[in-house]
Amino acid sequence: MVNLFPRSLAVAALLSAAPLTAQAGDGHDHDGLFAKAALDRLEWTSSKGVAALHWEGKASLGGDEDKAVLLSRGTMAEDGDFDSAEVQVLWSHAISDFFDVRTGVRGDLAPDPERTAWVFGISGLAPYWIETSASLFVGTRGDVGVRLEADTDLALTTRLILQPSLELNATSKDDRQRESYGGLTSLEGGLRLRYEVTPTVAPYVGVSWERALGETNGRGDSHRHDDETTSLLVGLKLMF
C-alpha cells in the first residue's frame, strides 16, 4: 500500500490555508468572499486492539450562493499506511435557504488502485436540525455509487453536545480490487459526545459502528472488513 502521507499533508495544507485568503465584508456594498475550514472529525479509533486515525474535514471559499468546497476523509492505520483516503473538489451552489447542490470530482487515493468519480450531490440542513447530504458518484469504470449521510446535534447542556450520525453507502458494480461488491456496501452509525470549549474547539469521545452489507459482507479476504466493527474513539472537532 502506498504511503500517502505527503499527499495527505498537501490536503491538510489546503484545508488550513483557505481561511488566509478570506476577505471579510467591508461594511456595506460588499458581498465578500468568506472562507471556512473545519475538521469535523479528527479521531483515534480502536477496535479489537487495532488503532487507526480517522479524519473528515471540509474547507470552503466563496459567497453566500456559490462556493468552492474541498472535502476530505480517510483512515490511517497504525503503520502509517492509508486504509482509505478520499478527496472531493466541488462547486457548491445554493438552491434554497438551507440546501446547496454540489458538483465536482472525487478522488479515492487509497487503497490502491486509485479511483476517480464525478460527484453530484445535495447537502443542507433538513427540518428538525438534521444535517443531510446525498451524493451520487459516477465512476470512470462506469460504476455508480451513492452515499447518504445524516447527523444532528442534541444539546445536553449549552456546551455538551451529543451527535448521532448515520451513513449509508451503495454501489452499482463490483470492485474486487477494493473488496467492494454491487449493492448496499456499508452502514455506519456513530454517537459522539463533544464538549465545546469554544465554538471552534471541541474534544469528544464516542463510539462508531460499521456493518458491511450485501455482497460486500463476508466476501473477499476480509482482512479489513469484519462483518461488523464497533470502535471506541477519542477525537477533536476543530473549526478555523
Binding site: A24, G25, F34, K36, A155, L156, T157, T158, P199
Partner: peptide, 24 residues
C-alpha cells in the same frame, strides 16, 4: 468586528451557543 462577521458566515450560531435549548 471583521472576525465577528467571518465567524457568523462560518456558523451563524457561532455566538449563540449560550441560547441553545438543551435537555435541561
Amino acid at each position: 468586528p471583521n472576525d465577528i462577521l467571518a465567524n457568523l458566515k462560518k456558523d451563524s450560531g457561532y455566538y449563540n451557543t449560550a441560547a441553545r435549548r438543551t435537555a435541561g
